[in-house]
Simulated scan of single mutants.
Amino acid sequence: MISFIGKRDNGGAPTGAGLQEIVQGFSIEVMPRTAAKVEDFRALLPEGTRVYIAHIEGTPIEEMVATAKRLAEDGFPVMPHFPARIIKDKATLEEWIKRYQGEAGVDQALLLAGGVAQPHGDYHSSMQLMESGLFDAHGFKRLHVAGHPEGNRDIDADGSTKLVDEAIRWKQAFSERTDAQMAIATQFAFEAEPVLEWIAGLREAGVDLPVHVGIAGPAKLQTLIKFAIACGVGPSLKVLQKRALDVTKLMLPYEPTDVLADFAEAQAIGTRPGVAQVHFFPLGGITACAEWARKHGAQPMKAAG
């Protein structure tokens, strides 16, 4: 039972105690170029934090594996992205899996289509990666898949969620015939209600995969709006647009305090299915995001002597 979560003061602001438990156990996303700017992850992140490594088109696999190795050696579980549309063929996929496993001890992955219009080779969806059988053959224990509570125009160009929803149901069926631990990691959103409604719809459709909700970390408002538009964030973008019209808030950095308090409050009430975990997209920088999480209760590892 979560206690005091979602509690707000008389002015409507969420209290620190109300955020602490929902922040615990968060995961975070990095890229090789952003990770290179961090001197010591152990001084920033709580012990055991899962670190996703985003694989952007054009990033050499050598840089991805080197980043995974560094994080693993620092004691963090590492979950690299496998974007289907930038993987040439099955031989390439197996090479990546073997390198992550052999050089960095990786046994978990986030499988996604990837934001590339034209596939580089044989794959165009995460389902094809799953069907390859390679992750099972090489002993991967955990597979996460992407979730899009506000739709994904790369898949459903008409703005619906028909194909996205069909894919999620397929992945649910796959989870029932595999030993891998599976979960859904969502695109970031700025409003809790659409995500909670989406989760409720999943449960009604028989999809019981845990949902790790994507949350944008602290950042300048202009930065967030740019990323939100580029990443196809849907209706919850209006939260940022409304904030941009308020001159008293325009120059202040965005923080995820309100949206997380709303998620936490919903879970405390317990009338609807909630989220299993928070996953941070540190769009304003890894350090700023980690420090915000620490401020709200997350404890970093002690640096090695």
Rank of each mutant, 00 (worst) to 15 (best):
G274K: 05
Q172K: 05
A35W: 03
S125W: 08
K90H: 07
D208C: 05
P46Q: 14
A261M: 00
A216I: 08
G11T: 11
G284L: 09
H81T: 02
S3N: 13
K302I: 13
I286H: 09
R203N: 09
G284N: 08
M1N: 11
V51C: 14
V51D: 10
Q241C: 13
G115V: 06
A104V: 02
H124G: 03
T178Y: 07
F188Y: 11
R153K: 11
A36Y: 04
G11F: 14
L19D: 11
E63I: 00
T92V: 06
R50L: 11
V275W: 00
G217W: 09
A68L: 00
R169Y: 01
R272H: 12
G105M: 01
A244F: 05
A173E: 15
K162P: 01
P218W: 02
T178S: 15
H138Y: 14
H296K: 03
R272E: 10
A13C: 13
L111N: 03
R243P: 13
Q187R: 08
L221Y: 08
A173D: 15
M127R: 15
D246P: 05
M301F: 02
L143M: 14
E73D: 14
G159F: 10
D107Q: 14
E21W: 13
G206S: 08
G270W: 10
I184A: 09
Q128S: 06
V106T: 13
D122W: 06
D136L: 06
A91V: 12
L129E: 07
A104M: 07
E176F: 02
W198I: 11
P46R: 14
T67F: 04
D246I: 06
W170I: 00
R153C: 01
E95Q: 14
G270K: 05
V30M: 07
F174H: 05
V30F: 11
D208N: 08
A91I: 10
V23G: 00
E62V: 10
A91P: 02
A230V: 12
Q181W: 06
D158R: 08
P46M: 12
P83V: 03
G75T: 01
G159Q: 03
L110G: 00
V278K: 01
G6C: 03
R153A: 12
F227I: 12
H144D: 15
A298V: 04
A117Y: 12
D74E: 15
K90S: 05
A264I: 03
E57P: 09
A303D: 03
A290M: 02
A293Y: 04
I286F: 09
D156Y: 04
L240W: 01
I199R: 01
D156R: 02
E197C: 05
I199Y: 00
G105V: 02
P46C: 10
H144A: 14
T92M: 09
A216K: 01
I225Q: 12
G201S: 07
E193P: 00
H144Y: 15
P253N: 07
E291W: 00
V259A: 04
T59E: 15
D122Q: 13
E57M: 11
L250R: 13
I184Q: 06
V78N: 13
G105F: 03
